[in-house]
Design a binder for these strands. Structure first.
Lengths: 208, 208
DNA sequence: TCACAAATCCCCCAAATAGGGGGATACTAT
DNA sequence: ATAGTATCCCCCTATTTGGGGGATTTGTGA
C-alpha cells in the first residue's frame, strides 16, 4: 500500500465521533483527516479534504445520511461511502445502497471489523454487517412455495417487464390465446384482476 | 453453543473435498458428517445425514449446484446452503441466491473465513466473499447520471409496476394528459416507443 | 434577463390491448 | 379417475396505447 487511507467521519454524536476518530487514527495505515457533526457542516469543507472513505451516520440533524449520499458523491465522485448506523430497516438499507453507499455497517460492529471494512471498501469490496448481509441476501430469495406453475411464473415475469400478451406470445412461441389463458389462471390464483395488482402481489411474495 | 455444527460437503474435486473436510473436521465445534461428489449421489443419503449446513459447489457433474439448491432445500428445509465456487458471474450468483442459497463464497476464500462463514450462516447471517458482496451491493445502486427528471423517473417506476396511465395519474394526483406528456418525454430521452422497451433500458442502466 | 428544462394540461386520431365471459383438447402425475 | 398443466378457440366492450399537434407556468442557471 503506497499511502495511508484518508478517512472522514460524519456523525452527530460527539462521543462516538471522537471514539471512531481515535480508534481509526491510531491504526497504522489510516489517517482521520476530518470529522463533522452534520452534512451541512461537511458540505463546505469536505471536498477540500479529499477523503478516500467517508464514514457516514444516517440519523443526522438537517440533511439525513441517506439524502447526503448522492450529494457527497457529487462533491467527491471517487470517494467511497460507508454507512455506520443503528438503523436496520430494509428500506433504509436499500435506499442507502441505491443512493451509492458502498457498504453498510451497524453500530454494534466491532471496531476491528470497521477498520477492516474501510480497507475493504477501498479495494472494491462491499462490506456489510452480518445482519445486513442476511437482509440483502434474503431480498434476492424467491418464495419456494409458489402457487403458480412454471409457465405461469414465466409469464408473470414477462408481464413484470411490461410486455403485452402479443409480445409474450412471440417470445414463448405460443398462441396469444394461450397467454391469455395463463394470465386468467394467474389472476384466479392470486385473486387479482389487473396486471398492476398481479405484479405487486407477486413481488411482495417474491413469486417473481 | 450446545452441540457441534454438522456439515456436509458436495464437491466433485476429490482433493478439494478432502481438504475442506479435513480442515473443517479438525476445527472445534464442527463435524463433517458426509461428503459427496455430486448431487445425484447426495440425494439418496443426505436427508438421513441431517446436516445443519451444506457446502455446495456449482460446477458439478449431472445436476449442477444452482439447480441442486431447491432440491436440497426440499429434502432439508431447515438446512443452510453455502455456495463455494470459482464462478463469479452475476447470473450465477443471483440465481444461486434466488434459489435459496444463504451465502456465497469463492474458492480463493481463506479457510478461516470459510469456517467462520459456516457458523455465521447458521446464526442467520449471509456470508459473502468480498468480491461477491461488491457485485451484490452494486446490483442495488442506481445510476447517478440519469437523463430523466425526478418526475419522469417516478413515472417510469410506476410503469415498471405495471400501472396504466390512469392509475399513475390517480396516484400522483395529476392529469392523465400530464402523465402522457411525461411518458412521451421518457420515450424521447430513452429513444424507445413502448413500455416494455423503456422498462428494459431503464433496468439495464439502473435508472429505476 | 433570457433561454432552457421541467411540470402541468389540452386536442386530434386509429390500432392494440386488457379483462370478462364461455368453451375444448391433450398430457402428466397421483 | 381426477386434478393440474399447457395448449388453443370464440364471443364481447371498455380501456389503453402511442403517434401527431400544441399551450402555460415555474424555476434555474448562464
Amino acid at each position: 500500500m503506497a499511502r495511508n487511507i484518508k478517512v472522514s467521519i460524519i456523525e452527530d454524536d460527539e462521543t462516538l465521533r471522537d471514539g471512531y476518530a481515535f480508534l481509526i487514527g491510531a491504526t497504522e495505515g489510516y489517517d482521520v483527516i476530518s470529522t463533522y457533526c452534520s452534512y451541512d457542516e461537511a458540505a463546505k469543507k469536505i471536498a477540500a479534504d479529499k477523503p478516500d472513505v467517508i464514514l457516514l451516520d444516517i440519523e443526522l440533524p438537517g440533511v439525513n445520511g441517506i439524502d447526503a449520499i448522492p450529494k457527497l458523491k457529487k462533491l467527491l465522485p471517487n470517494c467511497y461511502i460507508l454507512i455506520l448506523t443503528v438503523y436496520e430497516s430494509e428500506k433504509q438499507i436499500f435506499n442507502a445502497l441505491a443512493n451509492g453507499a458502498s457498504g453498510y455497517l451497524t453500530k454494534n460492529t466491532p471496531s476491528t471489523k470497521i477498520i477492516e471494512s474501510i480497507k475493504e471498501v477501498r479495494e472494491g469490496g462491499g462490506p456489510m454487517s452480518i445482519n445486513i448481509a442476511r437482509l440483502v441476501i434474503r431480498s434476492f430469495q424467491k418464495n419456494q412455495e409458489s402457487p403458480l406453475s412454471k409457465r405461469e411464473t414465466q409469464i408473470l415475469e414477462l408481464i413484470g417487464e411490461g410486455k403485452s400478451r402479443g409480445q409474450i406470445a412471440n417470445e414463448l412461441f405460443i398462441d396469444l390465446e394461450t397467454v391469455r389463458s395463463h394470465i386468467k389462471n394467474i389472476y384466479l390464483k392470486l385473486d387479482v384482476n389487473s396486471r398492476a395488482d398481479a405484479i405487486k402481489l407477486a413481488r411482495q411474495n417474491k413469486l417473481i
